[in-house]
């Protein structure tokens, strides 16, 4: 098995390895054949047991898996004519932020995403998907062009948070995110956002205001990472599993809260076990939601988007 196996998957992959060994035997005995049959049944049952009842922290582990498909993988699968562009025209090009133009089923569109690396080297270049202010401003620049040329915007969210560093503060991380929230709220084009991995706080929301919010099954979206929450509220980051439960940050939780529109299913084990199926599922969902938005005029989109966020929140009076 070339892909790293997560701790809770170990019992399953031990059996799968055993199965592979038995199948590879030149001269299997009758006992082997019997074992093969029972193994297959056991594997199926384990698969159902493990992936059928994933806890929030287990889903987060899948969402953070090094082999998990990144924004660029999906962009190349879902769009044609992908043309990446760079820079915020002010300070730099933030490689944690993916931006460009492409076609979605022949419709020209703008694509924004957060890009993590596939290995340590790329992760350093991509800053682990943590954007700086220039990343948010680059995204805004491309989205403004989308408005100018009346194109829908597709957003792929995958970030452990906006980068907390000296340079980011000096260049106005808070202002960059806030500006995007304000401008995205009034862009008269369809905006469809999909959380494909991690959706941490303002860093995710900073490119994530739109008409639809979809989430892959093994992704999370929250005001803070479970580790951050645990270290602040429980005084110990090792309480992250407890915080992950309490924060209600998985897709089904957020659908129930009226924040997320739909959870996109992943194959058993997660997107990295079967990229193609995952990408097809995303494509199907995006097509369906885009068809609902495509022919709405600008003022309607902006009004409906306003009401969408206006409703969010729970209080009494």
């Amino acid at each position: 098995m070339s892909l790293a196996v997560l701790d809770f998957e170990k019992p399953l992959y031990e059996k799968i390895d055993e199965l592979d060994r038995l199948r590879a035997k030149d001269k299997p005995t009758s006992a082997d054949a019997l074992r093969l049959r029972t193994l297959e049944g056991e594997i199926e049952q384990l698969r159902r047991e493990i992936y059928g009842g994933l806890t929030p922290i287990q889903r987060i582990k899948i969402a953070r898996h090094m082999a998990r498909p990144r924004s660029l993988d999906y962009v190349q699968y879902l769009f044609s004519g992908w043309t990446e562009v760079h820079g915020d025209r002010g300070f730099a090009d933030d490689q944690a932020c993916l931006a460009g133009y492409a076609r979605f089923d022949d419709v020209p569109c703008a694509v924004i995403g957060q890009q993590k690396g596939k290995d340590t080297k790329e992760n350093l270049a991509r800053n682990f998907g943590m954007m700086h202010p220039e990343g948010y401003r680059k995204a805004l620049r491309i989205m403004r062009n989308a408005v100018k040329f009346d194109m829908p915007i597709f957003v792929f969210i995958d970030t452990p948070g906006a980068y907390p560093g000296i340079g980011a503060e000096e260049r106005g991380q808070a202002e960059a995110i806030a500006r995007n929230l304000l401008e995205m709220a009034r862009m008269p084009v369809p905006i469809l956002c999909t959380v494909i991995g991690e959706g941490a706080s303002g860093g995710a929301l900073g490119i994530g205001v739109g008409d639809r919010l979809l989430m892959l099954e093994n992704s999370w979206y929250c005001v803070i990472s479970p580790e951050g929450c645990a270290s602040i509220l429980f005084r110990d980051a090792s309480h992250a599993p407890r915080a992950a439960e309490a924060l209600k940050l998985t897709g089904p939780d957020l659908v129930a809260q009226g924040i997320v529109d739909e959870v996109i299913p992943e194959p058993p084990g997660g997107a990295h076990r079967d990229f193609e199926t995952t990408a097809k599922n995303i494509q199907e969902a995006l097509r369906r939601h885009f068809a609902e938005l495509q022919h709405k005029d600008g003022p309607t989109l902006v009004e409906e988007r306003y009401q969408r966020y206006r409703r969010m929140g729970v209080f009494e009076e």
Binding site: L182, R186, K248, L249
Partner: peptide
């Protein structure tokens, strides 16, 4: 910052208030 005890609801208040300010700006 945002109130952790209300989790993602709190995060959404950032979008809600900013959307209202877009209208004030308009």
């Amino acid at each position: 910052g945002a109130r952790m005890q209300e989790s993602t609801y709190s995060l959404m208040q950032m979008a809600k208030t900013s959307a209202a300010l877009a209208r004030l700006d308009d």
